[in-house]
Simulated assay, not measured.
Amino acid sequence: MTAQHVRRVVTLHPGDVALGLRGDRLETLLGSCVAIVLTDPRRTVGTMCHIVTSRPATTMRTASGAQADVALQTMERLLQSRGFVAARCEAYVFGGGNMFPGLVSGPSVGDANVQWAERALAELGTRVLSVDVGGHVYRRLRWTVGPQAPQVEAVPL
Protein backbone atom coordinates (compact mmCIF):
# COMPACT_ATOMS: atom_id res chain seq x y z
CA MET A 1 0.00 0.00 0.00
CA THR A 2 1.35 3.47 -0.86
CA ALA A 3 1.20 6.44 1.44
CA GLN A 4 -1.42 8.98 0.44
CA HIS A 5 -0.15 12.46 -0.44
CA VAL A 6 -1.19 15.17 2.03
CA ARG A 7 -2.11 18.25 0.02
CA ARG A 8 -0.23 21.40 0.92
CA VAL A 9 -0.56 25.12 0.30
CA VAL A 10 2.80 26.81 -0.29
CA THR A 11 3.04 30.61 -0.38
CA LEU A 12 6.15 31.83 -2.17
CA HIS A 13 7.94 35.07 -1.30
CA PRO A 14 10.71 36.79 -3.30
CA GLY A 15 13.56 34.36 -3.85
CA ASP A 16 11.50 31.25 -3.06
CA VAL A 17 11.29 28.08 -5.13
CA ALA A 18 8.83 25.27 -4.39
CA LEU A 19 7.82 21.90 -5.76
CA GLY A 20 4.25 20.66 -5.58
CA LEU A 21 2.57 17.36 -6.37
CA ARG A 22 -0.89 16.94 -7.86
CA GLY A 23 -3.37 18.61 -5.53
CA ASP A 24 -0.86 20.92 -3.85
CA ARG A 25 -1.47 24.65 -4.24
CA LEU A 26 1.38 27.04 -5.01
CA GLU A 27 0.64 30.75 -4.69
CA THR A 28 2.33 34.13 -4.63
CA LEU A 29 1.76 37.87 -5.04
CA LEU A 30 3.78 39.61 -7.75
CA GLY A 31 4.64 43.20 -8.54
CA SER A 32 7.77 43.71 -10.64
CA CYS A 33 8.93 40.19 -9.74
CA VAL A 34 8.29 37.27 -12.05
CA ALA A 35 6.94 33.83 -11.28
CA ILE A 36 7.79 30.92 -13.52
CA VAL A 37 5.72 27.76 -13.28
CA LEU A 38 7.21 24.58 -14.75
CA THR A 39 5.10 21.44 -14.98
CA ASP A 40 5.23 18.10 -16.70
CA PRO A 41 2.78 17.77 -19.61
CA ARG A 42 0.50 15.48 -17.54
CA ARG A 43 0.46 18.03 -14.66
CA THR A 44 1.44 15.53 -11.97
CA VAL A 45 4.20 17.74 -10.56
CA GLY A 46 5.01 21.41 -10.75
CA THR A 47 7.56 23.92 -9.58
CA MET A 48 7.21 27.65 -9.08
CA CYS A 49 9.75 30.37 -8.40
CA HIS A 50 9.32 34.01 -7.40
CA ILE A 51 12.28 35.97 -8.77
CA VAL A 52 13.57 39.46 -9.42
CA THR A 53 16.71 40.31 -11.35
CA SER A 54 16.64 43.91 -10.01
CA ARG A 55 18.65 45.23 -12.92
CA PRO A 56 17.75 47.19 -16.05
CA ALA A 57 17.43 45.11 -19.21
CA THR A 58 20.92 46.10 -20.38
CA THR A 59 22.68 44.39 -17.46
CA MET A 60 20.54 41.32 -16.75
CA ARG A 61 23.41 38.82 -16.53
CA THR A 62 24.99 40.48 -13.50
CA ALA A 63 25.05 39.13 -9.94
CA SER A 64 21.32 39.50 -9.32
CA GLY A 65 20.57 37.80 -12.63
CA ALA A 66 22.65 34.96 -11.22
CA GLN A 67 20.15 34.63 -8.35
CA ALA A 68 17.41 34.07 -10.90
CA ASP A 69 19.66 31.52 -12.62
CA VAL A 70 20.02 29.68 -9.30
CA ALA A 71 16.23 29.64 -8.89
CA LEU A 72 15.77 28.09 -12.34
CA GLN A 73 18.52 25.55 -11.65
CA THR A 74 16.80 24.66 -8.38
CA MET A 75 13.53 24.12 -10.26
CA GLU A 76 15.37 21.84 -12.68
CA ARG A 77 16.86 19.81 -9.80
CA LEU A 78 13.47 19.49 -8.08
CA LEU A 79 11.90 18.22 -11.30
CA GLN A 80 14.79 15.79 -11.85
CA SER A 81 14.27 14.45 -8.33
CA ARG A 82 10.81 13.37 -9.53
CA GLY A 83 12.08 11.95 -12.83
CA PHE A 84 11.30 14.90 -15.11
CA VAL A 85 13.54 16.89 -17.44
CA ALA A 86 12.79 20.62 -17.32
CA ALA A 87 13.33 21.02 -21.07
CA ARG A 88 10.43 18.61 -21.66
CA CYS A 89 8.16 20.45 -19.25
CA GLU A 90 5.80 23.32 -20.01
CA ALA A 91 5.97 26.80 -18.56
CA TYR A 92 3.86 29.75 -17.55
CA VAL A 93 5.29 33.23 -16.87
CA PHE A 94 3.58 35.89 -14.75
CA GLY A 95 4.37 39.31 -13.26
CA GLY A 96 6.89 41.90 -14.34
CA GLY A 97 4.70 44.92 -13.71
CA ASN A 98 5.89 48.52 -13.53
CA MET A 99 5.04 49.37 -9.94
CA PHE A 100 6.14 53.01 -10.27
CA PRO A 101 4.61 54.27 -13.53
CA GLY A 102 4.85 57.89 -12.36
CA LEU A 103 8.62 57.52 -11.88
CA VAL A 104 9.61 54.99 -14.56
CA SER A 105 8.47 55.77 -18.09
CA GLY A 106 10.98 53.58 -19.94
CA PRO A 107 12.06 49.98 -19.35
CA SER A 108 11.41 48.96 -15.76
CA VAL A 109 12.78 46.29 -13.44
CA GLY A 110 9.62 44.32 -14.30
CA ASP A 111 10.51 44.45 -18.00
CA ALA A 112 14.01 43.18 -17.21
CA ASN A 113 12.57 40.32 -15.16
CA VAL A 114 10.24 39.27 -17.98
CA GLN A 115 13.03 39.43 -20.57
CA TRP A 116 15.26 37.31 -18.35
CA ALA A 117 12.54 34.70 -17.83
CA GLU A 118 11.65 34.46 -21.51
CA ARG A 119 15.30 34.18 -22.53
CA ALA A 120 16.11 31.60 -19.84
CA LEU A 121 13.16 29.41 -20.82
CA ALA A 122 14.09 29.68 -24.51
CA GLU A 123 17.67 28.64 -23.68
CA LEU A 124 16.32 25.72 -21.69
CA GLY A 125 14.12 24.71 -24.64
CA THR A 126 10.96 24.77 -22.53
CA ARG A 127 7.66 25.48 -24.27
CA VAL A 128 5.83 28.47 -22.77
CA LEU A 129 2.07 27.91 -22.69
CA SER A 130 0.96 31.28 -21.37
CA VAL A 131 2.35 34.66 -20.38
CA ASP A 132 0.60 37.36 -18.31
CA VAL A 133 3.13 40.15 -17.74
CA GLY A 134 3.69 43.89 -17.65
CA GLY A 135 1.26 46.69 -16.97
CA HIS A 136 0.67 48.61 -13.77
CA VAL A 137 -0.88 45.94 -11.55
CA TYR A 138 0.02 43.44 -8.90
CA ARG A 139 -0.83 39.85 -9.74
CA ARG A 140 -2.16 37.27 -7.31
CA LEU A 141 -1.14 33.88 -8.68
CA ARG A 142 -2.57 30.56 -7.53
CA TRP A 143 -2.07 27.14 -9.04
CA THR A 144 -3.31 23.82 -7.83
CA VAL A 145 -1.00 21.28 -9.45
CA GLY A 146 -3.21 19.42 -11.87
CA PRO A 147 -4.85 19.81 -15.27
CA GLN A 148 -6.05 23.41 -14.91
CA ALA A 149 -3.88 26.40 -15.83
CA PRO A 150 -2.68 28.68 -13.05
CA GLN A 151 -5.17 31.36 -12.00
CA VAL A 152 -4.02 34.95 -12.04
CA GLU A 153 -5.92 37.92 -10.68
CA ALA A 154 -4.92 41.52 -11.47
CA VAL A 155 -4.89 43.75 -8.40
CA PRO A 156 -4.78 47.51 -9.21
CA LEU A 157 -2.04 49.66 -7.67
Results as ranks from 00 to 15, higher is better:
Thr2Gln: 12
Gln4Tyr: 01
His5Lys: 09
Val6Met: 09
Val6Pro: 00
Val6Gln: 13
Val6Glu: 13
Arg7Tyr: 02
Arg7Ser: 12
Val9Leu: 08
Val10Pro: 00
Thr11Asp: 10
Leu12Trp: 08
Pro14Tyr: 09
Ala18Val: 03
Leu19Tyr: 10
Gly20Lys: 06
Gly20Tyr: 03
Gly20Glu: 06
Leu21Lys: 12
Arg22Ala: 14
Gly23Ile: 03
Asp24Ile: 02
Asp24Arg: 01
Arg25Met: 14
Arg25Thr: 15
Arg25Glu: 15
Glu27Pro: 00
Glu27Lys: 12
Leu29Tyr: 06
Leu30Trp: 12
Leu30Glu: 14
Gly31Glu: 12
Val34Lys: 06
Val34Ala: 05
Ala35Trp: 07
Ile36Tyr: 01
Leu38Ala: 05
Thr39Asp: 08
Asp40Gly: 04
Pro41Tyr: 02
Pro41Gln: 08
Pro41Phe: 07
Gly46Asn: 04
Thr47Ile: 01
Thr47Met: 03
Met48Ser: 05
Ser54Arg: 14
Pro56Glu: 11
Thr58Met: 11
Thr59Pro: 00
Met60Trp: 03
Met60Asp: 07
Arg61Thr: 13
Arg61Asn: 13
Ala66Asn: 09
Gln67Tyr: 13
Asp69Ile: 02
Ala71Ile: 08
Leu72Val: 15
Gln73Glu: 13
Thr74Gln: 11
Met75Asn: 03
Met75Thr: 03
Glu76Lys: 14
Arg77Thr: 12
Arg77Lys: 13
Leu78Gln: 13
Gln80Glu: 14
Ser81Gln: 14
Ser81Ile: 02
Ser81Phe: 06
Arg82Cys: 15
Val85Tyr: 08
Ala87Gly: 07
Ala87Cys: 02
Glu90Cys: 04
Glu90Thr: 10
Gly95Asp: 09
Asn98Thr: 00
Met99His: 00
Pro101Gln: 07
Gly102Val: 00
Leu103Val: 03
Val104Tyr: 01
Val104Leu: 01
Ser105Arg: 15
Ser108Met: 09
Ser108Tyr: 02
Gly110Met: 06
Asp111Thr: 08
Asn113Ile: 02
Val114Met: 06
Trp116Leu: 08
Ala117Val: 05
Ala117Asp: 07
Arg119His: 09
Ala120Gly: 10
Leu124Glu: 11
Leu124Ser: 13
Gly125Phe: 04
Thr126Lys: 04
Thr126Arg: 05
Val128Leu: 05
His136Pro: 00
His136Gly: 00
Tyr138Met: 10
Arg139Ile: 07
Arg140Gly: 10
Leu141Arg: 02
Leu141Ala: 03
Thr144Lys: 13
Val145Met: 08
Ala149Asn: 14
Pro150Arg: 06
Pro150Trp: 01
Gln151Lys: 13
Glu153Gln: 15
Val155Phe: 03
